[in-house]
Amino acid sequence: MPTPATPEGVASLEQYLLNAVPLLGQVQQILVSKLNVAPPSGIMAGIWTQNDATRGVWNAPANLVLNEVIAPKVLLTDAEQGDYNVPLNGHAIDILRAMVNRGTVVWGARTLDGNSLDYRYIQVRRTLIYIEQSIKETLAGFVFAPNDAGTWATVTATISNFLTQFWQAGGLMGDKASDAFTVQCGVPNTMTGLDVLNGYMIVNVSVQLIHPAEFIELTFTQTMQGV
């Protein structure tokens, strides 16, 4: 008989215990069902990272198939998900759905500010955060620069170059760069002479963010023969 120290011995001992104590098999099944359930937070962190790296932060981290996931713990239909996607209080919950022939899919890209036209979608909010943080890091290099026309022109050009590249990558809406964003810095557009004396350099940036086609409506018209 194999010794317990070998894989064969472990398997033999386990089978012996299952035969001697049938309840042990039931306990094992319960443990397996519990241990095989993972919270979605880690999965979504990976999805967000992969989405940002391969598709860009301006794309929704949704409609993506999850690898190594058997199925969601709770299966919902479109009708059942509706109240989670568009609740009255705006606190939307995005659902992992089991889709036929696709597997488990991230089905939703709304925020907890679902009643806001500006911040309703995850990718819109995160794109704005990304742009804001990137510009802040850029401006940190001008903290002690002269607050004059030369610095203002450099700041405007630097930010415009960053946004132009972001627009070219598909992150902003507009047929041309001037439609996608504007950048202003200087007297009298964004600050007064008093602001300059007080050490303030004020930059005004406007961007045209991309919103998703969340609801796609199809219209069919049938023309009768001979009519």
Rank of each mutant, 00 (worst) to 15 (best):
S178T: 12
R110W: 03
F181R: 05
F162H: 05
N67M: 10
A157S: 15
L194Q: 12
L117T: 15
R102M: 11
G193M: 09
G186S: 02
T182I: 14
S134T: 13
M191H: 06
W167S: 00
K176L: 02
L194N: 07
I159H: 10
Y121N: 07
N147Y: 08
R97P: 00
A62N: 14
I95G: 00
D148G: 09
S178G: 04
W167N: 06
S116Y: 09
L88G: 03
G186Q: 01
D148R: 06
I131N: 07
W58I: 01
G174T: 01
S116D: 15
L75C: 01
N115M: 05
L66N: 08
G186M: 01
G170R: 08
T158N: 04
G141L: 06
S160T: 13
G82V: 00
T156N: 11
M173T: 07
G186D: 06
T111H: 08
N59A: 11
F181S: 01
M173I: 04
P188G: 09
I159D: 10
D148T: 02
D78N: 08
V86A: 14
A169G: 12
G193Q: 11
L163K: 10
L172R: 14
G186K: 01
S116G: 13
V143R: 08
Y84F: 15
D113F: 02
G171Q: 07
T151N: 13
V106K: 07
L172G: 13
V155S: 00
T164N: 15
S160E: 07
T190M: 06
L172K: 11
L128F: 14
V155E: 03
A169E: 12
V124L: 01
T127I: 02
M173Q: 15
V155M: 07
S178R: 00
D78L: 11
T151I: 02
D113V: 02
S160Q: 07
A149P: 03
T190G: 11
D113Y: 05
M99L: 03
P146E: 15
A180G: 14
V183W: 07
W167G: 03
T138F: 03
G103P: 06
P146L: 07
T104C: 08
G82I: 01
D118T: 11
D94F: 12
Q184Y: 07
T182R: 14
G186C: 05
V183K: 08
P188C: 01
D94C: 13
I122S: 06
N101Q: 05
Q81C: 13
P61F: 00
V100T: 06
T127Y: 04
T192N: 04
I159G: 10
V124P: 03
L88M: 01
Y84R: 12
W107H: 10
R97S: 15
